[in-house]
Structures are given as C-alpha cells and as structure tokens.
Write a protein that binds this DNA or RNA. Structure first.
Lengths: 402, 402
DNA sequence: CTATATTTATTTTGACTCTAAATTTAGTTG
DNA sequence: CAACTAAATTTAGAGTCAAAATAAATATAG
C-alpha cells in the first residue's frame, strides 16, 4: 500500500527539505547556489528551506561569509553546514561477556566510547540492562553529550533478530540477549532502540567504512568466536522469516565439521589438542605467555612451526567450505572476514582463495575487514544514522549543542 | 541520492493519482466516497484525480449510477473502475526447446497464449528471436490486443540475469539465451523488455498466485529438468552480484551429489539405470507406454513398485539436502517446489519434511506449487505488472480498447 | 404529490508551496 | 566613486489541497 498520509501541500516542503538535508550530509560549507544545483530548487525556495532547517536545528549558518582565501566577485553568499551535533547516535555491541557503547555525531564521527564487562554469565536480565545502561551513560559523558540528545540507539546482539527488531529465542544460549533492552531504554530515557543481529551490523559497518566500501552484494562473516554471517544483496540486509538468515553453524554440520566455532575458538581448541599430544612444536613456548590464544597460533605459524601451519591449513579449508556454500547460493561480489581475529586472518586469504574453486563455481573476492573488533559498533552507528536520516523531519531536536 | 526531480506542486497530483490508482487496482466498482476513505483525500480532490485518470485512460466511469439491487438513499454516486484493458503485459517463458508467451490485462487475467518450439537447438540468435516474436504476435492476436498497446514485456530465461536485467554468459549453455531479446523487441515494436531468471519469476509467480501467497520470505525451487531457486527475502528478489544467486547446481557437488539435474531428469536417469539392471519392477510396463518419463516413475511408485519407491526416496533425500542448505542460510518461512513436476511431486513432501531436520536447525514448511508448468509465465506477468504499476503515470496509453 | 432526509457533486475561499522574473543588496574591481 | 557581479529579496502567478458553503439527485414519509 502507498503511504497512508494524504498528499497535502506541506508534503512538498518535506520532500524539498529532505533533499536539501541529504545534500548537506554529503558536503560541508555549502552555499545556497550549491543547494540549488544539487536539488533543482529555485533560489527563493532553497533559501526558505535552509532557514527552516536552521530554525529546527539541523543545520547551522557559518559566520565568515566570504570563502577563505579565494577571492570572488559579487555579493558574498551565505554559507550553511550540517549541524553534526544536532543530536547523537549510540552504537552498541552487546556480547556474552561485555557491552561496548560508542557515541557518534551525525556525520558518524565517534566522540565517546565505553566498555563494561558483565560481572558473570549468570546475572539477571535486569542486571545486564543496567550494565549496558551504565556503559551508555559513561560513553555519553565522555562525548560531552546529554542523554536527551540521543536520536537513536542501535544494538548488535549475537542472536537472531527479525527485520522488525524482535529477538526470537529458539536456543537457550540466545536467552542471554533477550533482556528487554528496547523497552528498558525507552522507559529510562525515551530512546528509540533498534535491535539487530551482530553479524548484520558488521556487514553494514564494513560496507560503510571497511573492505566492502561501496559493494552492493557482500557477505561479512563474523568469525572470531562463533560463526555468523551478515548478508547484503543489492545493499539490503537479509533477515529470513525469523531473523535466522546467516546462521551458518548448522551448515557446517551438514558438511561434516560438526561444531559452531569461529576461527579464534578453533585455533585454541586445535592448539590445545596438539599440545596434549606429543607434537614437537614451538607453540608450547608461545603459549607460556598466557592462555592459549589464537594469535599465538598465528605467531608460531609465522615462524614456520609445522603444527601451527597445519592448524592454519585446516582453518583455511573450513572457511573455504563455508564461503563456497554461501557464494554458490548468493553470488556475492565479495566475502569479508571480520571481527577481532581479522587482524591476524590475513594470512588465511591466499589459501582460502586457492581452495575456493573446489567449492563454488562463482568464487568471490575474499578480504579481511580493517575494522577489527569495532566492526559491530561501527555498523551499529551506521544503522542508527540510517534511521535518523530516514526520519529526520519527524524527529524533534532537544538539548543539542549547536 | 534522492529523486533528482525537484519537488514541484505537480508532484502532489502525481502522488494523489498514484494512491487512487493503487486503490482502484485492488477493488472494482468504486465510488468517490470510497476513494476518499481509502486515500484520505477530500471529495473535491478525489473527483479531480478520478477525472484526470479517466481522461488519460487508466480508469473508466460506469454507466449505471445506482448500484445493482441494493437500495440506497441520497444522490447516486458516480462509479469508477480500473480500465483493465488500458494496455497489456506480455509474460514470456523462454526455454531451451520452446518459447511460451501469454498476454495479460492490467488485472493479471490471461487473455491469450501461444507456445512455439524452436526448430532445433543449433539455430541462430536471430532465429530464436524471430520464433519468440512470432509467438508474441500470435498470443496478442488471440487476445484481441494490438502490439502498440503492450506496456511491458517480462521474459524468464534459464540463465543468470543481474538486477539490471543483463544476461551474463559465463557458461556455454547459457549462450542459448543471450539472444539480444531486449533490443530486438524494442526495435521491432518499441516494447520495454524486462529480462529475469526463470526461477526468480517462478518465485514472483508463486507468491502472487501460488502456494506462497502473501509469504515474505520464500524460496521457490524450479525443480523439473534442472535445479534453480528464486529467493525472496522480505518480498524482494535476491540476485547476487552477477545474477548468480540461486544457482544451486554447484551446491550439490559440494554435498557429493555431483550433477545439476532436477527431479524429472533424475527420475528418468535412475529409472533407466534400474531397467538396465535386472531389477524386477513394474516400471518396465509403465515405460512401454512411451519414453521414460518422470510421471511413470511416480505412477509405478503409487502402485507400490519397490524400485520406483527407492527412486522416490533418493529424490526426497536429495531435495531435503538442498532445501536444508538453503534454509540454514536464508531461513525462509516456506520452500516451494515448482515446475511441471510439481503436479506429481506432492508425494515427496512428507519424506522431505521428515529428512529435513537432519539438515537444518530451522526447517521451513515445504509445499508444491499449484501453478504447474505455467509458474514462469505467471511470474513474468507479475513482473510486467509490477513495472507498469510503478511507472503508470509516466506511461502513455495508446491504441487500447477502452 | 410535496416535504424532508440523505448522500453526492460543485463552487468558493484560503493556505501552502513552488517557479519565474524583476529588483535590491553587498560586496569587489578599477 | 562608479561599474560590475553574484546573491538575496520581492512580486506575480500557477498548481495543489482542505474546509466550508451551496447545489443536485434521489428515497422515503406523510
């Protein structure tokens, strides 16, 4: 159905204001003449719209009317600019053991950040929410932003979320994330909370500021501890009927791998197995520096340790199988490996690419994300900004620093 | 970017006309009062818009002002109705050995149909186009519609097509379909041709008038001769970067099945293998009625023939594996088996559902399409109508029967 | 048959938005 | 200071819609 709202004359101004605001977001230090060219409006209208938007706080007028340096003829133009601090967006990465919150302005620049651990896995939903809330307030504080200037909150969780943002708990483990965050934060602060699967946000994040910049058809595999994929087709996130799109775990069972571990987890497990045996390996030395971490395996492999190299080979094989299956079904242009392990996983790219032809007729490019373990918060910010940009003209600004 | 068109006052009328027309499409015999209620416009505007649309040919005014039978008080209302013959849509199913064309009015009712075989597989692209064109003109003739009243043509082909409607020939076989249909039909008749993968159209068709009516997340597997899937997530078709989304063939190689055959093909092959051996089977009798066709195998199975039952079991296993892989990755609510074989494939549903739990944690409902071998043309009509409905107000009507 | 009730259609008025063209303003240049 | 130039403002005109008042067409009651 079409928009239920009837086409009243005021709709025109909304449309005009929308395209002016959109243009402002993609540029800075803009004259009315530039607005006219970008939007096709006449000068009179362009000025009226700019004054509207300025009035409502979305843009500001610059003082120095004449552009810096370059001399120009004629009457100096008024100059406008997006008020990137008209409001803020919170991006959250809610994991099993900790919650991370970043504060972003309307251009997507991160102004504050805070990360708090959950005291232990058994705490109640209320306690989890309370930790998340505290992290949010700390992050806002460090950004110099007040809670009532938050325009949207986007949170990534490691459970299926459908396209309405509802969590569907069909596995016990996922109950960890079914904590009523939406209603809790709405009640406490009046915030609009968008829930989304963490891998889906990772996909948005990497397409925004990662390896997939500008790619329309891309799959981002969050591959550190568990495996989950965020899939974009034509730039749109796939959700499936109950948010279960991209839950790759079971796919691997089909292919005989039989577990749901990500790269870092598997590296740890396999390293431990090797050490339990009698293998001669420099891993032992590496692991004395602390617990068995994935990075130790990668370090040992870099030194040529045979056991570590074997583990890397198995990891590459596993990833190639997963990527091959995804590529056959969805034909993405690019598959990105993301998450904390992405920093070390670069060495896997070549072996993966080599094996990929065995598993798909349409091998995609494979890359690792440069966003590291902030990939989910970056994506959360993007999701929040998307919401704000779609709804700007319906949102009231309050308490923002102009 | 936003629409490049500036927001002129005329835009309002376009929006209003769009929602009135949309309402007209979903109802018949409509009064202005009904339009007002559906669109939120006032009476004056609603009347003006209706008169616009009538003028331009999209709707007609009914003569009998008072509704039949039911007595009503007050001044009789003017009554309007979609002019379903304002123009026509062609839906094409271009296969390996024949081309089928149906003519549909703007309500999606099929008014004419024609099917022509390609003389042999080796004919040139020009000759293929010429056969398709002849089928189109015959279908139009049988519908009493003239070629210049065609508003859109949608054609399904058994090759990958990207979301711009471009064919990407990366396998020799697909060259059969790279015949320049778009430009040829545009040149000959001025038609707008939308190309799409046949399984994708099947998905649109089955969601429109098949087993998936109203389902947002559905996968339709065209399963007769070859396997191909049309996948809808949130009601949107998936294409992948080069149109390769849903090409399931290779997926099966991964899982050790090793060929690209559909249900009917496999039934034939396995039946032939069984007959080559010494198996005691009533299939022999069935097959004397003609070539080894899939339906014979289903018929023999219905009589309890052990060999035929074995074949059905293998088919169900194969389909369960394929559906399981798709379901794990995309989490559809429903998977539909479509194509000519769908008529017989109903008996496979139960065994497939039974095996499905082995292959996915999120088993979807499984159904067969009631559309049989017209599933692709139905979907093509839907695709054409979608185009017309999106672009109504930019299309000129000409030569239509009012 | 007339008066009234009821529903629809039309007309009028006013508000909002946009474009286009003419005019004014605020600077630079010489 | 005058000439020039680009931006801003003003004015006139047109398209669109809502709201309210008026007119038209029919059914029903008496």
């Amino acid at each position: 159905m079409a928009d239920t709202a009837a086409a009243t004359p005021q709709l025109l101004r909304r449309v005009s204001a929308g395209s002016v605001l959109e243009f402002m977001r993609s540029s800075s230090d803009v004259t009315v003449t530039a607005v006219m060219e970008a939007t096709g409006l006449t000068r009179a209208t362009a000025i009226a719209v700019c004054e509207d938007l300025k009035e409502r706080g979305w843009i500001r007028e610059l003082e120095n009317q004449r552009a810096f340096g370059g001399y120009q003829k004629g009457r100096p133009a008024r100059r406008f600019e997006l008020n990137e601090r008209a409001g803020y967006v919170l991006g959250m990465d809610v994991g099993v053991s900790k919650a991370t919150v970043v504060v972003s302005d309307l251009r997507g620049d991160v102004l504050g950040k805070s990360s708090l651990p959950f005291p232990d896995a058994e705490i109640s939903a209320e306690e989890r929410v309370s930790v998340i809330d505290r992290a949010a307030l700390m992050a806002l504080d460090s950004a110099g932003a007040s809670p009532d200037s938050v325009l949207a909150v986007a949170a990534g969780i490691a459970a299926p979320v459908d396209r309405n943002g509802d969590v569907l708990v069909t596995q016990h483990f996922w109950g960890l994330f079914d904590v009523g965050l939406k209603s809790a934060l709405r009640e406490r602060h009046g915030w609009t909370v968008l829930l989304e699967n963490d891998a889906n946000l990772a996909a948005l994040g990497d397409r925004w500021r990662g390896a997939a910049a500008g790619v329309e058809d891309v799959v981002v595999i969050l591959a550190s501890e568990r495996l989950g994929a965020g899939m974009l087709d034509g730039g749109r996130l796939l959700h499936g009927s109950r948010g279960g799109a991209g839950e790759l775990a079971f796919l691997e069972q089909v292919q005989g791998v039989g577990d749901t571990f990500g790269i870092a987890s598997l590296a740890r497990v396999w390293a431990a197995q090797a050490l339990a045996g009698k293998a001669r390996t420099s891993l032992r030395a590496h692991l004395q520096h602390g617990g068995a971490e994935a990075e130790h395996v990668f370090a040992a492999a870099a030194e040529g340790d045979a056991v570590a190299l074997k583990i890397l080979d198995r990891l590459a094989d596993r990833m190639a199988r997963v990527i091959g299956a995804v590529a056959t079904m969805l034909n993405p242009e690019l598959v990105v490996i993301g998450g904390a392990v992405a920093n070390s996983a670069g060495v896997l790219l070549e072996p993966i690419a080599g094996k990929l032809k065995e598993f798909t007729a349409t091998p995609p490019r494979v890359a690792v994300s440069p966003l590291g373990d902030s990939i989910v918060t970056v994506g959360a910010v993007r999701a929040g900004l998307d919401y704000v940009e779609r709804n700007s003209l319906d949102l009231e600004l309050a308490g923002a620093v102009s």
